[in-house]
Structure formats: C-alpha cells, structure tokens
C-alpha cells in the first residue's frame, strides 16, 4: 500500500512556505537556533492559545497547519514523537516543588508536563477520538511515529494519519547540555570545524494517507531505525527491500551536525550512494532528537517543487539531475540512526 505525504505544518528556525520552492535560508552565527513562531491567530483560537505553553502551542499549531495544508478537518489517527516532552512545564513544576519545599503548588504546569500533552491537546481541539500515541524514544521518536503510520495505512484504507516530531530547547536544557559538551562555543557557527553542534528545536507535522491527490508532496517508501553498530546493514537492507541500488538515490539529506567528532563518520556511512547529491539540514534547524521531522519537511518540499537551492548542497556535491529517489539519513548523538526513503510522484 502506497503512503503519501499530503500536508505539512512546520515550525522551525526558518519561516517558509512548503508549497513554494525553497529559498536561501538565513544563516545563524550562534550555537543555538530557536523557532520562529508564526502568527497563530489563524490556527488556534486566542483563548486556547493563552493557556498553552510554548511547545504545546508549536505542536498544536503545526498540526493544525498540516491538516489545513492537506485540506482535511480531522485525521483518523494521531501518532507523535517527542524526546523531551514538555520540558518548560516540567522545569516550572520541578523548580517550584524544590524552592517551595513541596508546598503551595498549582496544577497547571504539572498537567501540561505529561509527554502526550501535544497529541492529547490536538485530539481535544479537533475532537479526534481515534488512536493517539506518543513515542519518546530519544533520536528515534519521530521515525517511530512515521513507521507506525505506515503500519496503519497497510491495515486500513482511506484514512489520514497525523504524525509529527516536536521538541523544545529551554534555557535550562541548553545550559545542562552545554555542560555535557554537546554544543559549540557561543559564536562558533555551524560550519566552523570544532567539537559540538548547535542547539535546535522544532515542530513538524504531516498528514499521511493512501490517497494521492493534488496536495501530495511525495511518496514514503520506507523508514528504518538502528543503533550505531547496524548502520551499514540497515542501509543495505532498506535499499534491497525496496529493490534499489545505492546508485539509484538522487539526493541524500544527511544529518551532519557540524560536530567534527562525528561528521566524517556520518558522511562515510552513506558514501556508497555513488550518484547522490548530499544535502544538509541541521544548519537551519539545529540539533535536536526529532530533527528528522524537519528533514522530512525539506525533502518533501524539494520533491514537490523539484528544486534544491545551492545553499543546501554539501561541498563536493553536484546539483541533482533528477529527484526520483531521496534518502534521509539522520543520527542523534551518533547513537540513534535512521533512514527514510522517499520517491517522487509518478503523476
């Protein structure tokens, strides 16, 4: 059963329209990219918006944008991925609990701290009673929701599945991860070869369905996930399972993140894709566990518009001559690896 991406809602470090050709993105010269939040008033009623924390707002609004983009009111099923869940609410409740000696606490931030708050709030807002899951498996959270949507579309016809990946970066999480040596020095840009990556966040939602229509961006052929030791076998596996050779991939979006401890190894993992144009994406969204969802937004937009600006192409790579098969190879902390295989629409 074919799986099509029919709608996208994307909130990231960039403001762009997924229905138009990708334009040159603004470059950042800091070690942290925060989301550019859109005007929410067309997406979420102001009264509801006020009660939502930032990550819930981004998640719910991008979900609404994806549904609108796909031209549907309500999906049949909702399945999300988030590694950190609602961090800001968690931090607020935890801080108060500790500073107020477990007294005089209020429920709001506790209620919103649950990991399935975004998927639950989407269901609540649009009255969706269907299956509603949230995966929280670090760098595989989003890809697991995509994998589950493919299973649903193999089980049932004529359904729409809303999937997505959402994670926020807070001041505290940025400070803590900085202490782990995760990020570059403050004014090291992405392209400076140094230890560490740049911090990111985002909310990217998709409506997937069996039905191809005028709104369809691309076809999803497959997704698979693995840990470091199985990367090369998984790449071979996803290609052979879909009757493709390494040379059939036209464009490969690679999750290189500017960290000179990993980038060469990550690039080498896909060096067998002999005809592929290699493109990056983390320079524009930063590094975060569900960044694969942003890569899917870029890849889908590229397949819809058949255009990839020079800016995205990694050095030593040529402009793609075709867009038949696109592979997203992402990793998180060089532990969680995933491959997502897309195909251009056959019209």
């Amino acid at each position: 059963m074919a799986v099509f991406i029919n709608g996208i809602g994307s909130i990231s470090g960039q403001l762009f329209d997924t229905r138009h050709s990708l334009q040159e993105f603004e470059s950042h010269d800091t070690n942290r990219i925060t989301c550019k939040e859109p005007d929410y008033k067309d997406l979420v009623p102001p009264m509801q918006l006020r009660r939502m924390s930032r990550v819930v707002r981004m998640g719910v609004a991008s979900a609404k944008a994806a549904l609108k983009d796909a031209g549907i009111e309500k999906p049949t099923i909702i399945t999300m991925g988030t590694s950190y869940g609602c961090l800001a609410d968690t931090e607020v409740f935890l801080s108060k609990l500790l500073t107020q000696d477990e007294t005089m606490l209020t429920p709001t931030s506790f209620i919103q701290s649950t990991h399935n708050t975004v998927s639950g709030q989407i269901a609540l807002m649009i009255g969706c009673h269907g299956h509603n899951f949230t995966y929280v498996h670090r760098g595989h959270s989003f890809e697991t929701s995509l994998q589950e949507s493919i299973m649903w579309l193999n089980e049932q016809e004529d359904i729409n599945v809303l999937i997505g990946g959402v994670d926020e970066m807070t001041m505290h999480s940025f400070e803590i991860m900085s202490r782990f040596g995760t990020f570059k020095k403050e004014h090291d840009a992405f392209d400076i070869p140094s230890e560490g990556t740049i911090a990111g966040e985002g909310a990217n939602m998709f409506v997937v369905s069996n039905q191809q229509n005028d709104h369809t961006y691309a076809e999803v052929l497959d997704v698979c996930m693995c840990m470091t030791e199985d990367v090369s076998t998984q790449l071979d596996h996803i290609l052979s399972k879909n009757n493709l050779n390494a040379s059939d991939i036209n464009v490969c979006f690679v999750g290189v993140n500017g960290d000179n401890r990993y980038d060469e190894e990550i690039f080498n993992n896909v060096s067998s894709l002999s005809n592929a144009t290699f493109a990056g994406f983390k320079k524009w969204c930063g590094e975060y566990p569900t960044s694969g969802a942003f890569a899917l937004t870029l890849a889908s937009t590229m397949l819809y518009t058949k255009h990839l600006p020079e800016q995205f192409i990694l050095s030593n790579s040529k402009q793609p001559t075709d867009f038949n098969y696109v592979l997203i190879y992402n990793h998180y902390k060089n532990q969680y690896h995933s491959f997502t295989l897309l195909k251009k629409l056959s019209n």
Binding site: Y135, H137, M225
Partner: peptide
Amino acid sequence: VINHECGSITELVAKHLGIRHFVTTISTA
C-alpha cells in the same frame, strides 16, 4: 540528569537485556 529522558531508561534496560533489533519507548501517561 544524564538519564532524564524516558527513552534513556529503555535504552539502559535494552542494552542490559541484549536487545537491539527494535527498541522503543511509549509515554501516554
């Protein structure tokens, strides 16, 4: 704080059990 994420717990246990073919974590309250 290194194992704060829900997925970290699963990862630690999966490694201890020696399972790596497919591992995931679900959190729906």
